[in-house]
Amino acid sequence: MIQAEPSGPVRRQDIVGDDDVVRVRQLVRTVAVETKLTLVDQTKLVTAASELARNTLVHGGGGYAEVQQVTNGRRLGIRIMFADTGPGIPDLDRAFTDGYSTGGGLGLGLSGARRLMDELDLSTEVGKGTVVTAVKWER
């Protein structure tokens, strides 16, 4: 489990179309700038958010994202959460493997996002949906 307490408002963005992936990126960037992440960390965070938002859209059939500034008592961070009510992921090991894709992409979405973020949790239930939560901490 990710240990993080809220330190800012929850901001939510529905993900139902391509343009919402762009909106998620913009929302995450806004919070990253407010949290004063370094430029490289902002870029990694926004890129990971873009991958996860597209997963929500393409694999989950749409859903929503929540973005929030959080703290672990020592450092600030940004938590991004993506939820869908899609088919779920039957084989998690494969879903985290580079190059494995069911959506016609490069299969880098989940594995790449995990590398770009500091922490990443995924819970999924076949037939019910998937929730991905990830945090990027300030240095």
Partner: peptide, 10 residues
Amino acid sequence: AVAITLVELG
């Protein structure tokens, strides 16, 4: 920053 991120993304 984009170059660094792309390589880490894989």
